[in-house]
Design a protein around this nucleic acid. Structure first.
Lengths: 211, 211
DNA sequence: CGGGTTATTGATTCGGTTCAAATCGAGTGG
DNA sequence: CCACTCGATTTGAACCGAATCAATAACCCG
C-alpha cells in the first residue's frame, strides 16, 4: 500500500478488548504477534468462541464494509497488531484490483471456516472437535512458520478450549487425557506436540483446505 | 444490471442438486421461489446443514470470487431460480460501486448468520435452537412478504430440522411437541403458526439483526 | 512464599441418542 | 373408491456422552 500512510501499532495484554460488541470501528488490525478470539456471550453467561485470530490474521476485514463490530474481540495472550484505517484500506482497494480480490478471498475463506465449525459443533463428538481444532491450528501456524517440527506454542487454557469446542472445561480435561492415552498428542506448559498426525487427522475427520 | 445480458432460469425438484461439492461454478443463482440448503456430509453419514436458502437469496455470491462450490446445495422444494453468469456479475461490479458494496454487505451479513449458528450449536439447548430457527425463518420470510399474519409455509421435514439444529429427528419431534404444549407454535401439514412471538423470541435468545 | 487462576478427578445427573415399533398421511395404481 | 406403498411422524425403553457439582492438587506470578 502507499507509503504516504503511517501505521500505528496496538499492544494488548491478555483479557484486554480489541473490540467491544456493536462498536464503531474506523480501523482494522493485522495481528503481528499473539492470539485473540471473538465470541458471543449469552445472557446467562454461556460463552461461545466464534473465531480464533492468529498472527497474520485481520480483525476484521468486514469492518471495512460496515464500520462496526458485531461481537467482542479479546486478546488471549500479549498481542501486537498493526492498525490500518478503513479509509486508507478502501482507498487502496479502489486503486488496486488485485488487492481487492485478495481481501474478498480472505473473507470468503473465513466464511468457509465458520461453516466447518458449524459441522464440528453440530455433528462431532468431543474427541473429534478437539482433534479438529488442533489440526486446524497446526496448519494455520505452519503456513506462517510458527511450528517447530511437530509442536507449537498453544496458549489456550482448557476453559478457552471449552468455549471454542462448545464443551465444558471439565470435559475438555477428560478428553485431553484420553488423547494423551491414545498417543495422539502431548500437551504441557503451553506446548502442544502432535505425536501421531495421520491418526489425529483421521480422528478429527480433518481434510486440508483444498480437499 | 445491463439489459444486454440475458438471464436463463433454473428449475429443480426436491432432492435435486443445485451444486455438488467442490464443483466449478461459472454462474450464481438468485432464488425466485422455493427453499434449498447447503450441507456437509461426514464419512459415516452424519449430516449438518450449514445454510438455508430462501427466496431472494443468492447461491452463492462467493462463487463470483473463486468460481467453485465447497459444499453441495440441494433443493428442499420445487425451486425456481435465476442464473447469473459470474463474468457478467463481475463486469457489472467493476462498473457499479454501489452494487459492489451491496454484494460485500450480503457476504458479510451471511457470515454473521453463520456466527450466530455457531453459538446456537455450541451453547444452546434443543428448545432454544428450534425456537431460534423459527424466529429466523419468520423474519427472513417477513422481509420478502411470505408471511401471512403470524404464520408461513414451512416445508422442512423433522429430519431437515434435525440436520439444521444438530439434533436427531426423534429429539426434534419431542421438542416440537414440547413447543406446542408450551403454546409457542402450531405446526401441521407444512404450515407453521407462531402463537406467542414474544415468548418464542425470549426462549430462543433471539435478537433481531440490528441489536 | 502466598494467592489466584488452571488443571485434575470423582460422583451424580441429565439432555439427547439409539433402537425399535406403531401410526399417520399423501400419492398411485387397480 | 379402496388397497398398497413409502416416507414422515410419533412414542417407548434403554443407553450414553457430556454437564454439573464438588473437592483437591498443581502451577504461575508478583
Amino acid at each position: 500500500m502507499s507509503d504516504s500512510v503511517s501505521y500505528t501499532k496496538l499492544y494488548l495484554r491478555p483479557h484486554q478488548f480489541l473490540a467491544r460488541e456493536n462498536e464503531s470501528q474506523p480501523a482494522i488490525y493485522r495481528i503481528l504477534e499473539g492470539w485473540a478470539h471473538r465470541f458471543r456471550l449469552l445472557p446467562d453467561g454461556r460463552r461461545q468462541v466464534t473465531r480464533l485470530f492468529l498472527p497474520g490474521d485481520y480483525c476484521e476485514m468486514e469492518w471495512a464494509q460496515n464500520g462496526r463490530s458485531r461481537e467482542p474481540i479479546v486478546a488471549l495472550t500479549n498481542l501486537r497488531a498493526l492498525r490500518i484505517e478503513c479509509d486508507d484500506l478502501l482507498y487502496a482497494l479502489s486503486k488496486d484490483h488485485e488487492l481487492e480480490m485478495k481481501i474478498w478471498s480472505k473473507i470468503v475463506s473465513s466464511s468457509y471456516q465458520l461453516s466447518e465449525w458449524i459441522t464440528n459443533l453440530g455433528r462431532k463428538t468431543a474427541l473429534e472437535r478437539l482433534s479438529y481444532l488442533f489440526c486446524e491450528i497446526f496448519e494455520r501456524l505452519r503456513t506462517i512458520n510458527l511450528t517447530y517440527d511437530d509442536q507449537f506454542v498453544m496458549p489456550l487454557t482448557q476453559t478457552d478450549l471449552a468455549d471454542i469446542t462448545g464443551l465444558t472445561s471439565v470435559h475438555v480435561n477428560r478428553t485431553l487425557k484420553q488423547m494423551r492415552e491414545k498417543g495422539l498428542i502431548e500437551l504441557q506448559s503451553k506446548w502442544l506436540r502432535i505425536v501421531d498426525m495421520p491418526e489425529l487427522r483421521k480422528v478429527a475427520l480433518f481434510q486440508p483446505e483444498g480437499r
